[in-house]
Design a protein around this nucleic acid. Structure first.
Lengths: 107, 107
DNA sequence: CAGAATCCTTATCGATACTG
DNA sequence: CAGTATCGATAAGGATTCTG
């Protein structure tokens, strides 16, 4: 992502969430924890690479918790942290706008 | 911007608003119409080029209205359309999250 | 004043192959 | 299963110059 954000709160937030997949990923995590390949299947079009990178970024931001179950084979679960759950509202509002946008442009 | 978005509403919305400046620009327009150079001064760090491009994109999406006053020299005003005013809520929520994020990371 | 045009750098993303 | 590593493509953004 971009470096050196000015510090405006909108820019700060968009810097963290503005990529192609991040908010979308969060929207898949609001329903509860998901495994890596589960997200890979469910998020349409995402590559393995971006899934890894963006989950890592969200984890580093303290919004997502990564839990490794030392089974064989390993099982890794991603869940929103308490901080990450603040994004539920963001996702809901964006989702609503996107939905309205689609319906408007369909007509 | 990216072509061929899958059609998911979150992706659709982020495709339109996910750039570095667009939501930020909208956040400056919620207080009322602004002139070109006014935005240029007030939005910290934006280049003339991006200001033009993103205002045009928002205009094309029907979210911003561009009004040219045929004075000498010309005066151009940008304002949110009724559709664009739907973004007030989006901006508010993002702004709130960004603010919380900054405060959390400051501590 | 409000831009358009051009050139260029960097960020973001995707495809593929490989691994503990 | 859940990743890494590498490479290349494209998109986003910046700097500069010029104009009605």
């Amino acid at each position: 992502m971009r470096k050196n954000v000015s510090g405006c709160s909108v820019e700060e937030a968009m810097h963290l969430l503005g990529g192609r997949w991040r908010l979308l990923l969060v929207s898949y995590l609001v329903d509860g924890p998901k495994r890596f390949n589960e997200l890979r299947r469910d998020v349409p079009g995402i590559s393995q690479r971006m899934l890894t990178l963006d989950l890592r970024a969200l984890e580093e931001a303290g919004l997502v918790l990564r839990t490794v179950y030392p089974t064989v084979p390993v099982k890794v679960e991603y869940a929103l942290t308490e901080d990450g759950k603040r994004l539920k509202y963001v996702v809901a509002v964006i989702q609503e706008f996107g939905l309205w946008l689609k319906q408007r442009d369909a007509a």
